[in-house]
Design a protein around this nucleic acid. Structure first.
Lengths: 201, 201, 201, 201
DNA sequence: AATGAATGAGATTTCATTCAT
DNA sequence: CATGAATGAAATCTCATTCAT
């Protein structure tokens, strides 16, 4: 097996093992030895692939986040009539799909944010999501660029994403599959809020 | 100095020290030794006042939460014309006042909720706040009790409280005094969302 | 209530509480706080009656040992025909009686001898028992004082007591009431051994 | 130095250090820090070789017990005329040899048996010694298998071993090399007791 | 005499990380 | 590259004992 492939395989195994462990023991219970054991490799070998423990968590987030971004992009591309409402709904439903597909990721995301690395990554990622969605909306010319400055729009978008995030947290806390009533409400809430930036006809 | 007063003073010192430390090092960085050093007393003495580390955190939350509840109650009592909008604004501004007075509390509240003790307390408290506000609104007959079931109203209120929390977190992250634009937006967001439960004329 | 009486009552309560605790948690689990709680008095008050924790254990042994000595003396006094065999049997059966009456004492005695205080007390007491029994036997003129020096007799007697002690330990380990087969064997063993010091007719 | 040898050497050093410490401070005074200091290695390294404190004690017992078993087996093999008396004497003298070689072991053995790990191991080992000796005696056809049931024989043998243990303890307490008079008496005592199971001609 | 409060001094164990090979 | 082994640095909590009142 070529070294690179072996390396990639091991990294995946580490990430999967970490995901499983977080699911079972929570973020606080996570140890390097635990990860190594679960991934069936020596502890010291972890450090060949990751600089430290936080880096593992981060990589896990990144991997699954990339999947989430893909899902959002793909689903948005399939929307015929792009409005603020359809965008919000599509994006948020895409999130839910990935949370369902990756329960461990959901756990880490929802409950693991005391870890500074994850927390910071989360803030950073939410900001990027907000920017991306704003860009899509802008290029679809569905944003009222006259009533708000660019900075205000950015702040609004980020607020909306964060608030949606928290609402989902609540929904997934109540039910590991996401409480349906709360999911719907979350979407309504964010939609309602963001419609103020929709272009007035 | 009477013993009881001395004891209370020490407890306060422990709580204040804890608050400072959480602010600086985060919840994960909190250690009993750290608390004791900061509070200038022997580690063993911590255990006279608190059964364990979690209990300290919990007490801190309780202390500041009580203050927050007071503030909200007092400010709401002073509102002449009670509407959903005036309630939300009054309550949220009351929160801001307390966050100003107790910056450490905000941090703990916003970032400390993976700690089980805090988490449970937080969920419980938010729920209670939501219930209280809902009760006030109901007795002022400004809630549309026909369009929603009681359970739905409870869920809506809780969601609003949690989402307001998160929005405030963002505002206070950007600016230690709370970013004004974001604070306003937060209030608008929650108000907008909750107005759907206002009684239709 | 006169102070002395109150004091004696408290000492008894401490001793009883200690006995119970040892029975439940073993010697290693014993704490001053535990004793105080069980005896329903403040920890600090323990130190009014005992110099330290070991002193409590020691006092407990002494109290029950005194009872044991009484039992032996009383039972021996009732023996009509004093021989080595009847002495050994009577004394050992008296031990068993007290072990039955005082199960906590039995526990401490049988399993608590890692504690230095208890261990030393045990050695000391076994020696005294040996001396006493030897004195009784000598005054009943059933000992062969010609074949052995006084020092040898003392050593023999002590060995017999210690060995009997260990045999009982085994018997009470196997069965909290004392395994009957082993109890009988223990008596036979000690009797058989000591008969060598019986006066030859 | 090859790693395995280094590891074995360290384990030995830990065991020796433990033995010394138990000898000086008793079992209760034993601490992981103490062991580590005496063995001149970091406390954390203890846990590379042993799962916890009890495991160290246990390993110490096992090591010395193995030596004792060897000694007994070797010496018994050299006995020409196997009788109960010669067996008992040979075995007990073999014990003495090992106690001489391993004074710490005797201490641990005699005083450490409240520690659960050691206690359980001790009971188990004494039983096995008793069984082994009984088996040797049986195969040499020097046991009266008609007067006693197998269970009784087993109990008798175990009692004899335990009682011999205790007698030896006394002998070694009085004199670090083992008081000769008491050693002789111990052998006589056990021999005398066990001869009842010798086959009647 | 009585006691609530205070504390010095550890004890055991865990863990992330680093080397030497 | 890979890894078994090693370890510095803590962390939490307990407990016997002592004071000040």
């Amino acid at each position: 097996m070529p070294i690179q492939a072996r390396s990639r395989e091991r990294v995946e195994r580490i990430l999967d093992a970490t995901a499983q462990l977080v699911l079972v023991d929570g973020i606080d219970g996570l140890t390097t030895r635990g990860i190594a054991d679960a991934a069936e490799l020596p502890v010291a070998s972890l450090y060949q692939y990751f600089s430290d423990k936080d880096a593992v968590l981060l990589a896990l987030c990144e991997r699954d986040m990339a999947e989430m971004d893909d899902q959002v992009a793909r689903d948005l591309a399939a929307v015929a009539d792009l409005t603020i409402a359809s965008m919000v709904e599509t994006a948020m439903r895409a999130f839910v799909k990935v949370y369902h597909r990756r329960p461990a990721f959901m756990q880490i995301w929802m409950r693991g944010r005391t870890n500074n690395a994850i927390y910071d990554y989360g803030r950073h990622h939410n900001k990027r999501i907000a920017e991306n969605l704003l860009a899509v909306a802008a290029s679809a010319r569905i944003v009222d660029t006259e009533a708000y400055t660019a900075a205000e729009l950015a702040a609004l978008a980020e607020l909306a994403v964060e608030v949606g995030d928290r609402a989902f947290q609540l929904a997934f806390e109540r039910d590991p599959r996401g409480d349906n009533f709360l999911l719907d409400q979350a979407i309504e809430l964010v939609t309602g809020y963001l419609e103020r930036i929709a272009k007035r006809p």
